[in-house]
Each structure stands twice: as structure tokens, then as C-alpha cells.
Nucleic acid binder design. Structure first.
Lengths: 193, 193
DNA sequence: CGCGACGTTGATTTGCCTCAACGATTGTGG
DNA sequence: CCACAATCGTTGAGGCAAATCAACGTCGCG
């Protein structure tokens, strides 16, 4: 029990009661490749911690094209944050699919909020993580504005080598906002320097 | 004193000591149009609340082009969040310029963290705001991936009518990641439906 | 009034997309 | 374990949205 709590919430000292509170809010989930954790239009109340495996969250636009918002591998949290953290929405706008057999821990946002209120330490860890994500998002927006497709690809494979190995090229293309054909040509160029 | 605290941190009940702690961390700043609050490469430790006026934060890329990350009008907070919230950086990567004479309240991140630790209510308000920003960022990333320049412009002027009035067209173009010429053509098209 | 800042328009270029076809690789059932 | 199909990645031709480059009108301010 302690090991998984430490993995999710950081390795600090908690009281027995605190450990119990956190542990009782968690639910372990085993997920097979190609199955869905979430589909657009469904109700969404939970966030998921990835203990093992790989998932993607993506949006399907009006033209039916998929756009990957986020990958998640060991140590990451995933959900439809647009629906969960946005105001006045409880219906998911994204889909979440398993790309590699996964072990997850699910916790409802409601329970998580409770935990933040009852255990200040967790609230401060959460703030730290949100602030770091805040910076990362601004960086990603900036990169999308300033960099060419080629530069964004190089950036991606150096920043997320662990993800690159576990996903298909067309997923990377979708994350970068380009077509598989363009990515293929970019990769060809890079090989020849 | 109370009115400004309520404006910044929400209208809830605080003890005298809490009010005093918050108030003593704030510093009022008056800023003239075209002056800079921050320049890239400088040390950055603070966040700024906009009580009045309008500012922009922007990044200058390798080619010397400016890219606006954020506007801020009354009620918004602004800083170089990439440097302030990112890991291991204390030098700013962005510039912040005043676009309309402004009244700001400055608080150091260090003091803000202190306040979060000492006043749980503030920590939870902060979490709420960060989570909302999280959702908004994912939305912006998605929009940049899925929408055409024209759609993004229409989106911008309907979502931020207050900002649209107070900034130049070339600033909007820079925020949207397009050239002033393209924006001009888009605007012309829209007038003729 | 005159200058600089801002916005517009035109001609041309370009990076990436679309559509189509075809190899390469992976997976699966017999 | 092979055969075949599906999935994935590559290549080519042509098109388009937006960028670039250049010139010019207009507005506001010192």
C-alpha cells in the first residue's frame, strides 16, 4: 500500500489515517491495448495515474480527424482535463485509448479535492505539479507558434524519447499536428542530415 | 486594503492577521504605456495582478520575430510563467510590455507560496485557478492544431472582445501566429461575409 | 504640417496537405 | 510455419493556405 501511495503522491511522511484515506480513494485498473478508457460525450469524473503501459488522449474534429493532446506513460496522469477542469462541462470532449497494456490507478476528482483539503501536503504537491504543467503548456504553445514541422519533430524525439519508442509514427504526427506523409518526408530528410 | 485583497484573492472571510500577511506582500506599481515590466534574460521572481490597463507577454524567436503568449487586462495575472514555474530556470525567456497605462500589484512567488502554506483557503483558490488554466491551455493547443487562421481569429474576437478593443491588429496576429498581412486579408473577407 | 506607425493590397513563393499508389512490416488463421 | 491480409510507412504529383517581399494609402500625434 505504502509503495503505491508514495509513487502517486510523493515520498513523504503521512499518518496512518492519511494513508488510509488516500488508499481507499484509489481503484486499480488493468487495461488491454486498443481498449478505451474514455469516449467523447460520456460523463467524466476521474483522473488516472499510469503505473505501467502507454495511453493517448485525443480529440476528433469536425472533419473527423484525430488530434492527440497527450500521451501518458509510467508516472504520468491522464484524463480529459478540458472537461474535468473546465467550467460547466461534465461530458468528455476527448477519447482516451490504451496503446500498450496498462496498469492504472483511478481516483475521482471529487475524492482528490477532498484529499487536498484534508492533507495540505498533497495540496502543495498538486500546486507544484500544476504550475510545472502550466509552464510546459506555454512552452508547447510557443513551439507550435514558432517552430516548423521538422523542428517540432526533432524537439519531440529528444524531449520524449521514452514515448517515441512506444507509439506509432502516425501518432507522433497527430500529436505534432502534421500528416503521416509529411512526417515520413521529414524523417527521410533527417537521415540524410 | 480589504477591497484590493478581495479583488485579488476572492471575497471570503479572512482573519486580521491573514489580511495583514497578504497585504504586506503586495506592492503597487503604476506603469506607463510602452514601458517594460520584464525583459528576457533578466531574473524573474514575481507575478503581477492587473488592476487596470493592458499588457502583453511575448517571446522573440531565433529569427527575431515576436510571438505573443498572453495578454492581460483587469482581473488577470501576468508573468513569465515558463521561467517562473518551469524547473531550473530563473532567467526570463519572455518580455512583458505595457500596452495601456496600467496599475498592477506585484507579489513574489516566494511570498505567494508562503501565503498558500499559511492560508489553506488561498491554496485551494489557487488550485482552482490553475486547473481552469490547465483546461484553457489544452483548448488553445487543440485550437491551434485544428482551426484555420480565419477560424482562430473569429474565435479570438468572440472569446476576448475586451482585449480586441485594446490592442493593435498586429498584436492579435502575433498572438494567433499569423502575419499582419494575412490578418488583414481575413478581416477583409469577413466584412464581405 | 510632416513624419512615423499602422493597415492594406498585389505578386510571388513555400511548407505542408491531399490524393493516389505502392513497398514493408506485422499479425493471424489454417 | 507459411500464406495472406491488414496495418503502417514511403513516394510522387498537384493544390492550397499562409508567408514573404514590396509598395502604397491613411491615420494620429508631436
Amino acid at each position: 500500500m505504502k509503495t503505491i501511495i508514495f509513487e502517486l503522491f510523493g515520498n513523504t511522511t503521512f499518518t496512518e489515517a492519511e494513508l488510509q484515506l488516500m488508499y481507499s480513494s484509489l481503484q486499480k485498473i488493468e487495461l488491454k491495448k486498443k481498449t478505451f478508457l474514455l469516449r467523447a460525450e460520456r460523463e467524466i469524473h476521474d483522473v488516472y495515474y499510469v503505473h505501467e503501459g502507454c495511453l493517448r488522449s485525443y480529440f476528433i474534429d469536425a472533419a473527423g480527424k484525430e488530434h492527440i493532446l497527450q500521451f501518458a506513460i509510467k508516472g504520468w496522469w491522464i484524463s480529459d482535463y478540458i472537461a474535468l477542469f473546465g467550467k460547466e462541462k461534465s461530458k468528455a470532449v476527448c477519447n482516451i485509448e490504451c496503446l500498450k497494456d496498462a496498469t492504472l490507478y483511478k481516483i475521482s476528482k471529487k475524492d482528490f479535492d477532498e484529499i487536498c483539503k484534508k492533507i495540505p501536503k498533497i495540496a502543495h504537491v498538486h500546486i507544484e505539479k500544476l504550475e510545472y504543467a502550466f509552464a510546459a503548456f506555454q512552452k508547447r504553445i510557443l513551439e507550435n507558434l514558432t517552430l516548423s514541422a521538422r523542428e517540432r519533430y526533432l524537439n519531440f524525439i529528444t524531449t520524449y524519447p521514452n514515448i517515441e519508442q512506444s507509439v506509432k509514427n502516425y501518432h507522433i504526427a497527430s500529436y505534432l499536428g502534421i500528416t503521416t506523409e509529411s512526417l515520413s518526408r521529414i524523417r527521410k530528410e533527417i537521415v540524410f542530415q
